[in-house]
Design a protein around this nucleic acid. Structure first.
Lengths: 246, 246
DNA sequence: GAAATAGTGTCTATCAGACATTATGGC
DNA sequence: GCCATAATGTCTGATAGACACTATTTC
């Protein structure tokens, strides 16, 4: 990144970034969890204008002094809004236009995060925050800005990635059973999956580690507990789950 | 987008976006084409500091006065740099950090574009531009900023999308033969594909329209010409091309 | 033993890979 | 006819879906 280029040091000494008009830049988060048999998204009630009193995705201005990078800004806001360290966090897309925010030209880079519902502690920060059930690809009330569109894109990405990756494990606690994992997939994909096929897929991908303890549910045979083998590596299924199963 | 919210009009009247410190915001392009049996990317030689004289991806500052949106900005730069109207253009990712540009905090939203090599006319704009062959996921010389990393990400995304979508048609002229399309896939995926399987895939996807004319090559039986049926709809193959074929 | 849930075995349809075969042009 | 390339046909192996069956717990 250091360029030994004649004249560049001089150029940089004189350079002033405020010469140019810039858009405002924000980072927003679509934080998903599964609880009560439904996909939920974390929303905040806006305390300030614009859209004061409306529900919106958590997020806000990037602070060039505090945030070393856009990723770091997203991680910071994740902690501030959801009090969580490092669950699954992935950049979704950047939305920017002259009219998406009444304050003027803004761009927002949106991240989507997955977490186990138990691992969240909503800190009663400045803003009122709560989990809202997602029906189809939307929530039941109006969202500020273009956040309804962003949420729809995020839900689509989540569904799409569930078909060929393991990311749903990030929606469960560290130890979980295969029926729980399957149920998570079914809730998000909104379709029943075959038990046998599902298990084959997961076992063949060799991503799970069997734990010797067992979990007992209220009824029936207890289910084997598993743990995800490698939270860093993102692995892919060789074939996609058919959206037209059944 | 218009909020009938008490106090909001007053708030907006007083609001001044320059209260907050903002990062600079740019849009960069990774423009791919296939020519001479190789994947190529469009690079420009930087006329100004920083990285003056280095090769870099085309792009530059978003202009809030001229650009209605980030997408519009990308389209504008595509015309300016490559003189092309509307080929395939897709947002790749946003890169932003304190140290990726010596001028200070910048974020760049990167798009990747595909085009037929014949459709490009490089306008000798302010910058010197040329097509550079991609070897693996890089070019043969150093790129300014973090553009080597960005290029690698773009190549990976291109390869990945080729395995399950039709986007390679955007690298060919409007009329093309199946062997030409197959060759394009082979060049980018860097692996030979079976003719029969390839044709089955493409035909079953029902995306091509047979043209009655035929094209003759120097030798052998002439190949049937086809046209892509719907440039807007993005369709997907039911299964991915195996990366481990052969 | 009945109910409930976990987990396994097996059949089948589908489809990609492999490769042989036929088709159609130039020379 | 020969060569080169395009296009088709057929076999096979892998695997997802379907579903029957077994296993293990609580009551």
């Amino acid at each position: 990144m250091i360029a030994a280029n004649p004249g560049e040091a001089e150029f940089l000494r004189r350079y002033d970034a405020s010469w140019y008009e810039k858009p405002s830049f924000t980072v927003d988060l679509v934080i998903f969890t599964v609880r009560d048999e439904h996909l939920h998204v974390l929303l905040v009630k806006r305390a300030e204008h614009p859209f004061k009193g409306c529900w919106a995705l958590p997020g806000g201005f990037l602070d060039p002094r505090r945030d070393a990078s856009v990723d770091a800004c997203a991680a910071r806001k994740l902690v501030e809004e959801a009090g969580v360290r490092a669950p699954y966090l992935e950049q979704l897309k950047t939305y920017g236009s002259r009219d998406r925010d009444p304050r003027g030209w803004t761009a927002t880079t949106v991240y989507f995060a997955l977490m186990a519902s138990a691992s969240v502690r909503l800190r009663g920060n400045q803003a009122e925050a709560c989990w809202v059930g997602v029906r189809g690809d939307r929530v039941d009330f109006d969202l500020g800005f273009d956040h309804a569109r962003i949420l729809a894109d995020a839900v689509e990405r989540l569904r799409s990635k569930l078909e060929y990756t393991h990311i749903a494990v990030h929606l469960l606690p560290e130890e979980f059973t295969l029926p729980e994992l399957q149920r998570t997939y079914e809730i998000i994909l909104q379709q029943p999956l075959d038990k046998s096929s599902f298990r084959r897929r997961v076992v063949q991908a060799d991503m799970l580690e069997e734990l010797t303890g067992k979990q007992r549910d209220g009824f029936g045979r207890p289910a084997q507990l598993y743990r995800f083998r490698d939270y860093d590596r993102q692995t892919f299924f060789p074939r996609s789950i058919s959206r037209h199963a059944r």
